[in-house]
Amino acid sequence: MLVAFTYAVAAAANADTPVYAVQQNGDMLFYKHAGDTNGSASWPIQAANIGNGWDFRQVFAGDAGSVYAVAQNGDMLFYKHAGYETGSADWPVQATKIGNGWDFRQVFAGDNGAIYAITRNGDMLFYQHAGFRDGSADWPIQAVKIGSGWNFRQVFAGSEGAIYAVTQSGDMLFYKHAGYETGSADWPIQAVKIGNGWDFRQVFAGDNGAIYAITQNGDMLFYQHAGFRDGSADWPIQAVKIGSGWNFKEVFAGGR
């Protein structure tokens, strides 16, 4: 019984979602959301300043503390945030150039080094960054076209190949990318409508179905998508307000 209890506590501790916010002045703030499984407004770490000078075209996070920044000239820079569990400003790898030519409409990360890039004409390209743990410029898969017609307001990835697209009308569409580890254009589920009214400033995902939405007035809402594996419109938690004042240039979650 003691072993089971200890395991449960450890699992709960590891379940917290790191959330990063980039201010207008380029400072990066760190938040830790402990309520990512139940929608509670539990933030054991809030607004810890972990860096400055984040004046990039786009910033996003992958797994295990990997943070990517796309510079204005299209260079891709890699940062390793070793403090993604504690909120400490611990960056053993900073601003390492791992690529160039990232002149895309949007770039975001999936699991295990999967990187998706959407071109200006709506094509989706797949990259595999094998160096997501150490910052090496190791790209075994680069610029493989895995789809077209991705002309959405916003696209982002969840766990295990879950891809979400928000249309101009606010509908939420679900895609399952079974090729997120190989780069194959394998989409067993495509464009399944799982919701509407997603008229938010920004939407992004944590792990295991956690979805965060920031309203126009800066409120943060939490959703739990239980159908992140099969594409079902199963939302046991919807639009729970878990914070306010999220008026940042960019907000995104890190993976574990």
Rank of each mutant, 00 (worst) to 15 (best):
Y175L: 02
S159Y: 13
I189C: 07
Q190L: 05
D171Q: 12
L173E: 08
M172I: 14
E160C: 01
G179S: 12
Q190P: 01
A191K: 14
T182N: 14
I194Q: 10
A178D: 10
K176F: 03
N196S: 15
W198A: 06
Q190C: 04
K193H: 04
A191G: 04
E160H: 13
D186R: 03
I194M: 09
Y175T: 01
G158E: 09
Y175K: 00
I163M: 04
G195A: 13
A191Y: 08
V166E: 06
E160S: 15
E181C: 00
D171Y: 08
K176Q: 14
T182Y: 05
V166L: 09
G170V: 02
D186L: 12
D171M: 01
Y164L: 03
F174I: 10
A162L: 07
G158Y: 05
V166Q: 05
W198F: 15
G197P: 09
V166M: 06
P188L: 05
A178W: 04
D171R: 06
T182P: 02
G170I: 08
N196L: 01
W187P: 03
G195F: 13
A178V: 01
G183F: 09
F174R: 11
E160Y: 15
I194A: 14
G161W: 06
A178E: 10
G170A: 08
G158M: 11
D186F: 11
E160K: 11
A165L: 00
A157E: 01
G195W: 12
W187N: 03
D186P: 00
I194H: 11
G161A: 09
P188W: 02
I189V: 15
S159M: 08
V166A: 05
L173M: 13
H177W: 15
I194P: 05
L173A: 08
V192D: 11
E160I: 11
V192Q: 13
W187A: 04
K176I: 05
A191S: 14
D171S: 12
D171V: 04
I189R: 02
N196C: 00
G179D: 10
G183L: 08
G158Q: 10
G195L: 13
A191E: 14
K193L: 04
G179E: 09
D171I: 02
L173W: 13
P188K: 07
G197E: 09
V166C: 04
I163H: 05
A162H: 07
W198S: 05
P188E: 04
Y175R: 01
H177E: 06
A185D: 12
Y180N: 01
A165D: 02
N196T: 14
D186I: 00
V192C: 01
M172H: 03
V166F: 06
A157H: 02
I194T: 12
G179A: 14
G195R: 11
Q168R: 15
Y164G: 03
A165M: 01
G195S: 13
V166N: 01
Y180M: 08
I163D: 00
T182F: 06
A162K: 10
A191W: 11
E181H: 13
T182L: 02
T167E: 08
S159C: 01
M172A: 11
A162I: 07
G158N: 12
S184P: 00
A185G: 12
S159Q: 15
A162S: 14
